[in-house]
Write a protein that binds this DNA or RNA. Sequence first.
DNA 1: TGCCTGCGTGTGACCGGTCACATCCGCATA
DNA 2: TATGCGGATGTGACCGGTCACACGCAGGCA
Lengths: 341, 341
Amino acid sequence: MPSPRPGRETAPSIRDVAAAAGVSRQTVSRVLNASPKVSAETRQTVMEVIERLRYRPNRVARALGTGRARGVTVVTSDTMLYGYASTLQGIEEAARVEGLAVGVRVVESDREGDVRSAADYVSDPSAGGVIVIAFDAAGIAVLRALPESLPAAAAVEPGVRGVARPAICLDEQQASAEATRHLLALGHRTVHHVAIPSESEHSGRQAGWRRALAEAGAAVPPVVPVGWDVRSAYEAGRVLAADAGVTAILCGNDHIALAVRRALFEAGKDVPGDVSIVGFDGVPGAEYWTPALTTVEMDFAGLGRATVAAVLAELAGASQPAVSLTPPRLVVRESTAPPRT
Amino acid sequence: MPSPRPGRETAPSIRDVAAAAGVSRQTVSRVLNASPKVSAETRQTVMEVIERLRYRPNRVARALGTGRARGVTVVTSDTMLYGYASTLQGIEEAARVEGLAVGVRVVESDREGDVRSAADYVSDPSAGGVIVIAFDAAGIAVLRALPESLPAAAAVEPGVRGVARPAICLDEQQASAEATRHLLALGHRTVHHVAIPSESEHSGRQAGWRRALAEAGAAVPPVVPVGWDVRSAYEAGRVLAADAGVTAILCGNDHIALAVRRALFEAGKDVPGDVSIVGFDGVPGAEYWTPALTTVEMDFAGLGRATVAAVLAELAGASQPAVSLTPPRLVVRESTAPPRT
DNA sequence: TGCCTGCGTGTGACCGGTCACATCCGCATA
DNA sequence: TATGCGGATGTGACCGGTCACACGCAGGCA
């Protein structure tokens, strides 16, 4: 605590500004909040004083007065995985532009205790609006546990139901189908799919893949589920590499593609000579991989920005603003080719 | 605003708890803050009431009362790059364990306006303690612009001077020297170095590399600086690939290594057959690259945790706690081998 | 002239905690 | 019995904004 006694240590308050400008604190408050009920003249005076005193409104006091902080808190189960991290980045950027504070809260799992604790955390007024990155079970559980009254929005996988919140998603179904068709068109009999943990049967990746296979009358091989850890993707790759019938693999994300590629390499199979692989995400640098990765680019940052717009609308009580997201799109590079005849 | 009129919408306050427990609000406050000046009996009663009412102290009110929020705000120029993101992750984790709120604020550059705005942002009491990820010019500028009175700590590159704050770093000089010696021992005449933007002449990577070369009496080739973007690393790789004298490259980070490897590949050079490469960071999955990458593993998460301990100490007015960091260490894999004779 | 209207402004209470200080009580000591 | 003392608890002010409402004043209309 900086003792307020010696000299003038403490930052100027709204009352200091009011006194210096010869108006009431409420008038200063109105100027700060761009209220129209202030004469141009008074506003001018007040702003000059604010400038002169280098006054900055205290966010804490404001939050206590209004009952909620002017900011957003992101709830997520992870901060490093590409999809999560980019979404977070988009949120931060949009929030900063809007002058909102940004908080982060990680939920480690969908266990009762973790979920409750995260929900409690964001229930506090200091959390402001809440954005849940609900790509997985933990996120969805938090979304469900959130008190009705909280202003919130979510970034989700396509196909999520039963969430009474504005939920935004990147619909990768089209692009996933396109990627599958691309492989089929190259002459592959069918396409195998390695699924990330956040995927469900109805989520975009899997739905698009299924649809494209069905349309082409191709067999639908069993989905190979893996965890977020690279090792499990590698193990899955080994299994697929051992199967001579596998010539094309649609991987749940780019990092999985990298590990699968390694497994294929160890099995003496060339990419794309023997097996073609496609990723999801479009991580930076995928074009400089060896071979350069064919992948579905996803605009997670845009998704993040859209969720900010959504909570802002919730906060203001307005209806959902129509933010247009750039849809996922297939980028063909070197990792896909016709199968060896 | 949930109108407090109809029914009981609002969360219980400390006064509700006090009333229900038959004590004063101050006593409840003491229980919450684990003050020793409460009888065991009273404490018990109060805790039961808290439990029954599901009371959660209001972080905003507390911050207004104490003058500062119980939390930390991370200032960083980036949230996605591996080093930054892992440090952030470590901070979040440690903060959560300590019951601290976590905020994030990005500074886009070291321009006056950006720096000032970030410094203003964290000067607000709602920011709590401040942790600056000062691997680069933007971070260091913020660190310098921070008001004296703010509780703050920083994660920095080794060799940073003139920062009147607890500054913690991962000293990779040893490991860098070791990596260089490893290459020299394999028979390489010298080792080239591609430097990341955050590196200075005196930072660990470069210092270790220089020292090892000097000790071995090897020539010190000019450092090749690149940006954070993968493309610039690729361009640097092309230049090195065109030079027949280059047989070993110490890359500033793993992603650079990946791009350099691509450039070598395009030039018809094999890794590690023709050229050996070493990375820095130890990104997850590097062991599944093709070839698996020899790299220096860095414990950024541990660094992040240490900074939390440091701000906590600042907050409490205590001296620096001695947190032991796990030092960076070389992990030899497949991307390094003797030069072709 | 009287009254209503609306704009610009000011006043007191309040948000939910904490701080500094006062008070009460029981027991040991003089 | 008076005094001192320290542990346990309570009281009022305060942190720095906002909210709801009151107020003064000018112009328009009856």
